[in-house]
Amino acid sequence: MAILVYTENWDGAFKKVSFELISFASKLAEVMGDTVTALSIGQVPENELSRLGNYGAHKILKVESEDLTVVDNQVYTKIIAEAASKEDAKVVLLAHNNVGKALAPRIAVRLKAGIGSGLTGLPENLDPFITSKKIFSGKAGSAIEIKTPVKVLTLSQNSFEVTENKLDSKIETFVPEAPTKGVTSRLNMEKQSGKIILTDADVVVSAGRGMKSPDNWGPIEELADLLGAATACSRPVSDEGWRPHNEHTGQTGKIIAPNLYFAFGISGAIQHLAGVSSSKCIVAVNTDPDAPIFEAADYGIVGDAMKVLPELISAIRQVKS
């Protein structure tokens, strides 16, 4: 028996979340008495594949084919489900990101498995299998029982620490019976080069309507560059077209959980807080001392973001140098 982990790569390098997944699976395998099999799809160099062994993968299956550069949900589902059957996997684990959310439900139906999505930690109990997840976009938590022998789980990003557990793992080529060519066709791809991915970022610098104009985003971007952070925004700002939709964090936008979240000129509507409340540390800067953001924040400054930002940037520059 095994825990099968789909480890996602980007241009041949594994995403940070893939190591979080292996670390999670390794701990789960320990209590379940199972082993961990990582499944990599696409072209990943051997030395990168072997890194999965550093965090507790016993076996690494690689599926390589030119066709698989593009994620076709049907094709990927069949390959992952086939690998799960071959490994006699009782748990199939994916990231709770766009790819995981697309594949996990399909895999669950294919394997007649119950699904636990967006988990934030190890299961509370193994038999019955009870796991916990946040609901109402973080406004509440819940315990869910998954009643099927095979379980499909998705793990929230940045919720499980990457832990070293070096194993002498072996890499095997897996040739699935399922066809590698799907029916969807990709016409075009746009990479946001040089930008830190919002859902992957350890630090996020976010701003709202308190910035008064889209022309005032300079210092936000400067601070983000300085900290190696991603930029984000509140809903009104993306609705106004001041910032792109993919920066909107909140209940109906992106749900994020960075280590450090800066909110400049964001009042903190309940929907915004729902998307960021899992952040480990929240810093709020707002002119209104009664803004609800201060209830969610760890540190706050009542003041004008446009005045605070340059001072903050120079203070950080000072400690960095």
């Binding site: 699904i115 009870i130 509440a140 819940s142 315990a143 869910i144 998954i146 009643k147």
Partner: peptide, 24 residues
């Protein structure tokens, strides 16, 4: 195949530590 057994509300957060805007 799955069942919600129990719900919980998040614990109250400690109050926000305020910093003087003149002392960033």
């Amino acid at each position: 195949l799955t069942e919600f057994l129990k719900f919980t509300l998040p614990e109250a957060k400690p109050p926000c530590k305020m910093v003087d805007p003149e002392n960033v």
